[in-house]
Simulated assay, not measured.
Amino acid sequence: MILLISDLHLEEERPDITRAFLHFLQTRAPQAEALYILGDFFEAWIGDDAMTPFQHSIAQALRKLSDGGTRIFLMHGNRDFMIGKAFCREAGCSLLADPSLVRMNGEPVLLMHGDSLCTQDEAYMRLRKWLRNPASLFILRNLPLTTRYKLARKLRKESRMQTPQKAAEITDVTPEEIPRILRQHGVRTLIHGHTHRPATHELQLDGQPARRIVLGDWDRRGWALQVDENGFLQHSFDLI
């Protein structure tokens, strides 16, 4: 069994999500051979050198799961793209490139966070291109902590103000991107998060069935996609 989750946006201000995630790690996750976290695991991340006691506690919970035999893979999201090797060492997880091609149930599956598919949001795409540039990342990681805190607060504030004003089709994936990315990687199953619109979209790709599975965000409920001999099944559950 494999489990996939995304968009928990963990932060101290949402203890309900943290409790639900820790419960998930203690109950469902140990039964899985692998856990994939497809981005926006944390609400914000300004560098491994700025880890808080809260973030250390999450790393330690992941390490316990990893030590128990469950492999953990973590993909960057648009909120936590500065997570680095130090966190992964502490948490016992492996960083996963976006996109990544893996095999599940005997078929190739493409995993993404999903923000790169939202090409109609041109302002965000320009910002994303700058933030993910290696030179920009080097500069950001070497800024004083106080400067990084201020920049993170500024970006979060702007995002919260701008997102509600954008049309739904701009903040969702661009439909034409789906067949393009499936053909590019030679797959018929794509799994991603980011949009907070959990669903399974059945598609036709060059006369063959294909699908796009969108993972749910942990806000009012928790979400997990389970992959096993029964297929790809996503379920929601109460936050405890």
Rank of each mutant, 00 (worst) to 15 (best):
I37K: 12
R153N: 05
L4A: 03
L225W: 11
A97S: 08
I83C: 07
T147V: 07
C88I: 00
L38I: 08
R132Y: 05
I240Q: 15
G47L: 11
T174V: 14
S94F: 03
I46G: 07
M51P: 09
G84P: 00
L96F: 03
W223Y: 15
N105F: 12
I17D: 02
K129R: 10
F138N: 10
K157W: 02
R14A: 03
F237Q: 13
H185V: 05
R103F: 13
V173C: 08
I181A: 11
L205P: 01
V109H: 13
G222F: 11
V109M: 02
I213T: 09
F87Y: 07
L145F: 07
G69S: 13
L111H: 13
F41D: 00
S94V: 02
E177M: 15
K129F: 00
R212G: 01
E229H: 14
T147S: 09
I191S: 07
M161Y: 02
Q55W: 13
V102C: 00
L35H: 14
Q234A: 14
Q162I: 06
R212E: 00
L74T: 14
R141C: 00
T174N: 15
P108T: 07
P53R: 14
L74Y: 15
C93G: 03
L205H: 06
R188T: 12
E33Q: 13
R19M: 02
M125E: 05
I58K: 13
A20V: 04
T146Q: 08
F237A: 08
G84W: 10
F87T: 03
P15Y: 02
T147P: 00
I191F: 11
T147Q: 10
N142I: 00
Q60E: 15
M112H: 13
A168F: 08
